[in-house]
């Protein structure tokens, strides 16, 4: 404690570089270039090099983290336009089953089946949810929570699409490296693509819908069409994740509609900081390896996992990424108050 007559307070300054580089890229000093590029380039390079140093098991963990990351990104996109979804497993499952059907019934090659499953998955999801985009908040969440359950039960009870046995597919990736790198590259592409999208005018409308949908409506914009478009994009992203895993495991069963694929991405986004995309990606890159590392703890794994989540959310509600970003951009100093 300082004596009462000398008043000192913490002053905080933002680095001016963001203002300078937001639209016009005129960066002269190498220090500035490094400052801007480092947080973007370093993670990309690290992710691309990492598989060379990992064992097959750890590569698998990395791929799984990318898949959960894709789901988290798709959740974050929906959250950005005010659609709070608890049904990422719906998108995931639809994509997985579409891929399974392409292969099992139509015998399409993977390079046709994968994109086709992605797009058709997104289309099916947006058609299914189009009637309920009028719902907001918890009501939309409830509908999206119920749909995967519905699909699961239909498949279980009717025996359609292989029923409880699932579909064993034949098509697969030509080799391990293709699968690993496809997962990582799509993950990175979606991450940077979405960040670009949300900064564009199109993304601005989406964010405005979240903040005040009536104001957007009165600006003459069809918000339902926009929401369905966002659903298609988010659905396609998650469907790709599902289709990707189907081809990787050469199997699809009704467990793809399980809770895990709804909760994990949500937890990842909450941990990393929702609304930034990078937060969701970072969160999944932390959570999935963490959950694997905790496997040794046996029964206590889920408990300790929950504990980590709760502590981080209480201690850092803004999210890890938002915290790091803020600290990266700010100087702090003690100044005397006159």
């Amino acid at each position: 404690m300082q004596p009462p007559d000398v008043k000192i307070r913490r002053k905080r300054l933002d680095r001016g570089i963001k203002a300078r580089t937001d639209s016009v890229f005129v960066i002269a000093a190498p220090g500035d270039i490094i400052y801007v590029l480092a947080p973007r380039v370093l993670p990309v390079v690290a992710l691309l090099i990492l598989p060379f140093f990992l064992s097959e098991y750890h590569q698998e963990v990395l791929v799984h983290a990318s898949v959960v990351g894709l789901l988290a990104l798709s959740w974050d996109l929906l959250a950005c336009c005010g659609l709070f979804s608890l049904g990422q497993s719906l998108f995931f499952g639809v994509g997985a089953y579409m891929a399974g059907m392409m292969d099992y019934y139509l015998h399409l090659s993977i390079w046709i089946g994968l994109p086709l499953a992605t797009l058709s998955g997104g289309a099916i999801c947006s058609i299914l949810l189009a009637p309920v985009v009028r719902l907001k908040g918890v009501y939309f969440a409830m509908v999206t929570l119920m749909l995967p359950l519905l699909f699961r039960k239909i498949i279980e009870a009717s025996g359609l699409l292989g029923g409880t046995l699932g579909l064993s597919t034949r098509g697969s990736f030509p080799n391990e490296w293709v699968a690993v790198y496809l997962g990582i590259i799509v993950f990175l592409g979606v991450l940077f693509g979405l960040r670009k999208l949300i900064d564009s005018d199109y993304g601005l409308v989406l964010k405005a819908i979240r903040d005040d949908d009536r104001a957007v409506m009165s600006a003459g914009i069809n918000i339902y069409a926009r929401k369905v478009q966002a659903l298609f994009v988010a659905g396609s992203i998650a469907s790709f994740a599902g289709a990707f895993l189907t081809y990787r495991y050469e199997f699809v069963g009704f467990s793809v509609f399980a809770w895990d694929y709804a909760i994990l991405p949500l937890a990842a986004a909450a941990l990393g900081g929702p609304g930034t995309f990078a937060g969701a990606a970072l969160g999944s890159m932390i959570l999935v390896p963490l959950s694997e590392a905790l496997r040794a703890m046996g029964g206590l794994r889920i408990a300790s996992y929950c504990l980590v989540l709760m502590v981080s959310i209480i201690a850092l509600p803004e999210g890890i990424f938002s915290f790091l970003e803020r600290k990266y951009h700010q100087f702090e100093s003690l100044v005397e108050v006159k």
Binding site: R9, R10, S322
Partner: peptide
């Protein structure tokens, strides 16, 4: 402070 928003100083 928890949100990481504006820092408010009271003296």
């Amino acid at each position: 402070q928890r949100r990481g928003g504006e820092r408010i100083t009271i003296m």
